[in-house]
Design a protein around this nucleic acid. Structure first.
Length: 468
RNA sequence: GGCGCGGUAGCCAAGUGGUAAGGCAGAGGUCUGCAAAACCUUUAUCACCGGUUCGAAUCCGGUCCGCGCCUCCA
């Protein structure tokens, strides 16, 4: 089965066919580094991680580019308030960003271009647009894109601009744009910019936001590429403007597939900086949750579905993950036993793998993929109990889990936990007490282990300890 | 107002024509010194109204409710 995605451009599910067979170029709108990203932002990056992992899982070679917006109103304002040079100010948040995606186990993109290091490319693009006659220089020294000279404007957002409204607004427009919907390609320096400015053919200034993504995506992926993603809030005007600029400059189709993910909600409202209802990853970690748990929570809902963030959801995630961990542990224990049940187990694994893949190929239907995983867990657990999954059969399942985890990134199949000697000694002591039927002593030791953060489970093959 | 998304069990969430996946929680059971874990069983007619159809959560029309974008925003 070919992989299919919902393309915002056509508003329908389409079969995915890359420009170059077997290779995918994708551009993902990244963070504006003026502050710590919140987990709503990370939902988008998680979705992109799932997308790139799924593409790789399906055999594609992926080249992902994620920009770092390090010059805009907010970064400039922030750096001035902090009394720091722009670079120094944004460095802190760039570092934090990379630290966070590591915690969330998000696979790094191939390229992370920074806007401030691609000013030349942006200037070149603006010049091309002026030459093409779709941009104009305003009295204040800024350069604007004229949407009236790009008939296809609105193709992505499907908006029809109201001419009357435009006229009414233009009179009050302090920037003397020809039309209110025209957007800045190059912003002339003003006082609020401080010392942040670059020389250009139109004087000192800085690039507009949209031009950044056009210039950098084309630099690293070519004039036309396969996939462009972002949150739905970027659909208009950001992505619409990118299309206009890029296609007006090159005369070619900019992007074939536009994928947008829905928002993360808190108490029924979009999580956002301006509403103040956000949690950074650090906030959530400080409450005792792990990056892995946050990853699971952000991953388990389909990307085009709004996801309501709750701490209860995180607690649910923890339990689900525990069950998966337990499953891995049982498999490892079963794997050292004499072989049994290989054929039946292999067939079960094949079915699970097929269902898992089918879900992902269907516009990243993660719910279907996870259902396939949990069905496998249930069935194999049953087989283990019945002694029908041992030795190489158990290894087969572990191999399948490792394979699925290339996409999920949460299973930790090969994680091995070392039990400190002190803890092991307590476990042994408790076991001796149990043998002697001194249950009061055994339970006291179990309480002590619990207090130290370890959980003990008695199995037919002896006690098992793990971190709580 | 324009454009768009969504309303499925206590909570989360798949399913776009043939009588409702999965996760969490709950209940009962097996196992266990007890517990934990695991396993088994069990819990819904899909916001509402009308229509199409042999048959609809799924298609069409309407209503109500929630949310997003239209300005910086993942």
């Amino acid at each position: 089965m070919p992989i299919r995605f919902y393309n915002s451009l056509s508003r329908s599910i389409e079969e995915f066919n890359p420009i170059r067979p077997g290779r995918v170029g994708m551009y993902t709108c990244g963070p504006t580094v003026y502050n710590y990203a919140h987990i709503g932002n990370y939902r988008a990056y998680m979705f992109e991680d799932l997308l790139r992992r799924t593409l790789k899982f399906c055999g594609f070679e992926v080249r992902q580019v994620m920009n770092l917006t390090d010059v805009d109103d907010k970064t400039i304002r922030g750096s001035r308030e902090a009394g720091l040079p722009l670079d120094e100010y944004t460095r802190k948040y760039k570092d934090a960003f990379f630290e966070d995606i590591g915690v969330l186990r998000i696979e790094p993109a191939e390229v992370y271009p920074e806007a401030t290091r691609h000013i030349d490319e942006m200037i070149g693009l603006v010049e091309a647009l002026l030459t093409a006659g779709v941009a104009y220089r305003a009295d204040d020294g800024s350069v604007y894109f004229s949407i009236s000279r790009f008939p296809r404007y609105g193709q992505l957002a499907r908006i029809a601009l109201d001419p009357e409204r435009q006229v009414a607004r233009v009179r009050h427009d302090e920037y003397a744009k020809e039309s209110i919907a025209d957007f800045a390609l190059w912003k002339a320096w003003d006082e609020a910019d401080g010392d942040v400015a670059w020389e250009s053919p139109w004087g000192r200034g800085r690039p507009g936001w949209h031009i950044e993504c056009s210039a950098m995506s084309m630099r690293y992926l070519g004039k036309s590429f396969d996939i462009h993603t972002g949150g739905v809030d970027n659909l208009f005007p950001h992505h619409e403007d990118e299309i206009a600029q890029s296609e007006a400059a090159t005369g070619r189709k900019f992007v074939n597939y536009w994928l947008h993910c829905a928002h993360l909600m808190v108490d029924g409202r979009k999580m956002s900086k301006s509403l103040g209802n956000f949690y950074t990853l650090r906030d959530v970690l400080d409450r005792g949750f792990s990056g892995r748990e946050v990853r699971w929570e952000l991953l388990r809902t389909h990307y085009r579905q709004t996801l309501n963030f709750t701490f209860q959801g995180l607690r649910d995630a923890r339990v689900s993950l525990n069950r998966l961990d337990e499953f891995v542990t049982r498999l490892k224990e079963a794997a050292v036993e004499p072989n049994a049940g290989r054929d039946a187990v292999e067939e079960r694994c094949r079915n699970a793998a097929a269902a898992f893949l089918a879900g992902l190929e269907d516009d990243l239907n993660i719910s279907a993929a996870l259902a396939a995983l949990f069905d496998l867990v249930r069935d194999v657990n049953r087989m283990i109990d019945a002694g029908e999954c041992r030795g190489n059969a158990a290894e087969t399942v572990l191999g399948r889990l490792r394979d699925m985890d290339r996409v999920l990134g949460v299973l930790d199949v090969d994680r091995s936990e070392t039990v400190p000697g002190e803890i092991q000694a307590l476990v042994d002591e408790r076991q001796a007490a149990r043998k002697a039927r001194d249950y009061a002593r055994a339970d006291a030791i179990r309480d002590e282990l619990t207090a130290k953060g370890w959980t003990i489970e008695d199995t037919p093959k002896g006690p098992r300890v793990k971190r709580a």
